[in-house]
């Protein structure tokens, strides 16, 4: 069943005096439960694409259909995890995680029950009373993921969430992310510039072309899980994706 469909998404940005066409008609079909990894040259509009799906930005042309209905604004069924986490430094970890529930007017005790489940899942229970400045980058991203999961969204939109992590922490989170996906059955769109990360996580990998970007190629990834970055049988597909990507990155320069 199609969960999310984008039809001919076009987005312009003002660049000095002229209009820059960032997205040049992006068509993507995402099935319920898909884990789609988006790769592409930097500046091609991946973040913009996610933000349009989240409803944080409106496309100049085209539309996003969620369960067949066009979206017009943000909604709790489409939650974004930002590149830098965007955690609120004035709130403790638990209050960060409960933020969306509080906005929805859910009473305190109930919030605590719900957040506990996700704090446990992300192994954050020990830190629930910490402030974010006391956490490592990896821990912060765990909080950001817990804060999104707590909303119980149908679609999770993740914008390079692991880009700032060291290799060990990233490998750990790559395994956990697969388990979370299997456990929660979420539909996930995951932007990364790391091809190895994309094949480890995704059920599909979408390759963006350079600006004005479209989806150049959509590839299925069928390997048993949990996958690890060092799995040798992933290398072939990685090479294939890289060979799609390389000419696009070159055009950029």
């Amino acid at each position: 069943m199609t969960k999310l469909e984008t039809k001919g998404i076009v987005k312009y940005f003002k660049h000095e005096s002229h209009q820059l066409m960032a997205l040049g008609g992006v068509d993507l079909n995402v099935e319920d439960g898909d884990f789609v990894c988006l790769v592409g040259p930097s500046g091609c509009g991946k973040s913009t694409f996610l933000r349009i799906i989240a409803g944080l930005e409106t496309p100049d042309e085209g539309q996003v259909l969620f369960d067949g209905k066009p979206i017009t604004t943000t909604g709790p069924e489409r939650i974004m995890v930002f590149q830098e986490g965007a955690l609120f430094p004035w709130l403790k970890v638990q209050d960060n995680v409960e933020f969306g529930l509080k906005m929805a007017g859910i009473p305190k005790e109930e919030r605590a029950q719900i957040s506990k489940r996700y704090l446990d899942m992300m192994q954050l229970t020990k830190f629930s009373n910490s402030f974010t400045y006391q956490l490592s980058t990896g821990m912060k991203q765990r909080v950001a993921i817990a804060r999104a999961l707590v909303m119980d969204p149908d679609v999770l939109l993740m914008d390079e969430p692991f880009a700032a992590l060291d290799a060990q922490t990233r490998d750990l989170l790559l395994v956990e992310m697969q388990l979370i996906w299997e456990k929660t059955k979420k539909t996930i769109l995951f932007v990364t510039h790391n091809v190895a990360e994309a094949v480890v996580l995704g059920t599909k990998v979408a390759v963006f072309s350079n600006r004005p970007s479209k989806i150049k190629k959509l590839m299925a990834v069928d390997f048993k899980r949990p996958r690890l970055t060092e799995d040798e049988n992933l290398l072939g597909l990685q090479q294939e994706i890289l060979s799609e990507l390389r000419p696009e990155v070159k055009k950029e320069r």
Binding site: T74, I79, F82, A86, F88, W90, F99, G100, M103
Partner: peptide, 29 residues
Amino acid sequence: IDPHYVEAARNMGAKGTQLITNVLIPAAF
């Protein structure tokens, strides 16, 4: 204010005075 704070809050359903008291004031503090 880092626009990501406001976007994250809007995405999680904050609007109007909720956004002011829960995000704008603490973020600008």
